[in-house]
């Protein structure tokens, strides 16, 4: 038996009617209309003001870093050599988390929306959503005290057999508190983001399209590839980018799990640090120039997430013409 996800009938149809009509409708006074449009404008301006305020704060506080002599920086070799290992650590941890969470998240979402019997789909969905409700400090504590010691044998194995690859170079950390462990924890943390968003979108695939594929003699997997994935492509990318944003900025879990240090190409040894965790660890005792330096690091993190988001928008817009939105 083939089954189609339950859905609201035919989303993605009638694009023109869907757009909000401009001007006052037949009911409601023009004054109400003006009040509401003023409210909406105010709300959107407020967001811009807050965003600009944050950016301004970061820039002002980070300004003293520009032109400061190299010896004043932590490590004594200038801002660039201070920041690049942190950026590298952040990107590596986020990338590994995505590599782990994306296929699992999309797979689980597809299982819930199109494969699981209905009585199973609901509980699985709840459990995944529950993951999102666990505070990050709990994930951190779990990662540090439960996952890290148990993952050591795997690292030993990787170091022994795949040690010729620089990222698995031994000897492996005896505590398991490595960037790879932190990445696994991050991956689990962003899993519910990717899963619940992808599931929503998978379920919105128009029934008419799915039936078109089945009617041509497609198997369920072929139907998914022909209709569900293309329809959900932009949504999957958005969900992955949301997850990436969380992974880049996540602080507590990394701080607890990772025993940080200078940049280390081997993922199974201790070392490496992320920007967010570096700031969290040092901020309470920082004053003067050290404070400016940490805020400058924060500004760099802000810029990275900004670029990631813009990139995501660019990728999504490239598929616009062929997206389901104009059918």
């Amino acid at each position: 038996m083939t089954r189609i996800a339950p859905t609201e009938p035919e989303t993605g149809e009638a694009p023109a009617e869907r757009r909000a009509p401009r001007g006052a409708g037949p009911s409601g006074s023009p004054r109400q209309d003006a009040a509401f449009s003023g409210l909406a404008l105010g709300a959107s301006l407020l967001i811009l003001v807050v965003l600009a305020g944050v950016a301004l704060f970061l820039c002002l506080q980070a300004w003293p870093v520009v032109g400061a002599p190299a010896e004043e920086f932590y490590g004594g070799e200038g801002f660039l050599s201070y920041i690049w290992p942190l950026v590298a650590g952040t990107l590596i941890a986020a990338a590994i988390a995505l590599v782990i969470a994306t296929p699992v998240g999309v797979g689980v979402a597809l299982y819930i929306s199109h494969y699981a019997p209905r009585r199973l789909a609901k509980p699985v969905g709840y459990v995944i959503d529950l993951l999102a409700a666990i505070p990050s400090i709990i994930f951190g504590a779990w990662g540090a005290s439960v996952l890290a010691p148990r993952i050591v044998p795997l690292y030993d194995w990787l170091g022994a057999y795949l040690g010729f690859i620089p990222i698995f170079a031994g000897p492996a950390s005896a505590t398991g508190k490595t960037i790879l462990t932190a990445s696994v924890v991050l991956g689990i943390m962003i899993l519910p983001i990717i899963t619940s968003m992808s599931r929503e979108i998978f379920q919105q695939t128009p029934v008419l399209q799915q039936e078109a594929a089945l009617g041509l003699g497609a198997t369920r997997w072929e139907m998914v590839r022909m209709t569900v994935f293309p329809f959900a492509r932009a949504g999957i990318i958005s969900s992955v980018m949301l997850g990436l944003g969380r992974a880049l900025g996540e602080t507590m879990a990394v701080t607890l799990v990772l025993s940080g240090g200078p940049f280390n190409p081997s993922l199974i040894q201790s070392g490496n640090q992320t920007v967010a965790s570096e700031i969290a660890l040092n901020f309470p005792e920082a004053y003067g120039f050290r404070m400016n330096e940490l805020i400058a690091a924060g500004l760099v993190l802000f810029l990275i997430t900004l670029v990631v988001n813009m990139l995501a928008r660019f990728v999504v817009s490239r598929y616009k013409e062929f997206s389901g939105a104009n059918s």
Binding site: L208, Q209, G215, L216, G217, Y319, N326
Partner: peptide
């Protein structure tokens, strides 16, 4: 059923070309 549907084609109430 997959083979049945390739032998017996179907055209639906509303046009539904694959939008992508």
């Amino acid at each position: 059923p997959v083979r049945v549907r390739s032998q017996v084609g179907m055209v639906f109430q509303r046009p539904n070309p694959f939008p992508t």
